[in-house]
Amino acid sequence: ENVVSAPMPGKVLRVLVRVGDRVRVGQGLLVLEAMKMENEIPSPRDGVVKRILVKEGEIVDTGQPLIELG
């Protein structure tokens, strides 16, 4: 699984990683606000951040690609 998608609609509050960062399974990639709750979106696997597909403040839909892992 190379693309991390939004599990719910919401607003991207914070991106916690940068392109080139090594991440571990379960590590927070970004914080999504949904229904006034902050939800940290975890990495599904170990890898390297290849691309960040959203910006802070952006509104996303369920299933929208957020981050690509390499």
Rank of each mutant, 00 (worst) to 15 (best):
S43H: 03
R24L: 12
L66Y: 05
G70T: 06
G26Y: 12
L13N: 10
T62R: 03
P44W: 15
G26P: 09
L16V: 03
K11W: 10
V12D: 00
I41N: 11
I52G: 05
G20T: 15
E56W: 02
L66H: 01
P42I: 14
L29A: 03
R14T: 06
R14Y: 10
R22K: 14
G70W: 15
I41R: 10
Q27Y: 02
Q64F: 07
V31Y: 03
Q64L: 11
S43Y: 05
L66I: 03
L66M: 11
L69G: 09
K50C: 02
R51E: 13
G47Y: 00
D46R: 02
V12C: 01
R51G: 15
G28I: 12
L29S: 07
L30K: 00
V4T: 13
R51S: 14
I59T: 04
L13R: 05
T62G: 07
L16S: 13
I67H: 07
P44R: 02
P9D: 04
K55N: 12
I41F: 10
Q64Y: 06
R18M: 12
I59N: 08
V12Q: 02
Q27E: 13
V60G: 07
L29Y: 03
P65D: 14
D46P: 02
L13A: 12
G57N: 12
V60W: 03
S5I: 08
I41Q: 12
R18V: 13
G20S: 09
P9R: 13
E68D: 02
G10H: 12
L16W: 04
G10F: 09
G47L: 02
G20M: 05
L69Y: 08
V3G: 15
M8V: 10
M35H: 11
V48L: 09
M35K: 04
E33H: 07
I52T: 14
E58K: 04
D61F: 08
V15W: 04
K36C: 02
G57A: 07
K11L: 08
S43L: 02
V31R: 09
R18H: 14
L32T: 09
V23T: 09
E1S: 00
L29M: 10
V3Y: 02
V48N: 08
P9E: 04
G63I: 07
A34G: 07
N2W: 03
A6K: 02
D46T: 10
G10R: 04
A34M: 06
V31W: 09
L32P: 00
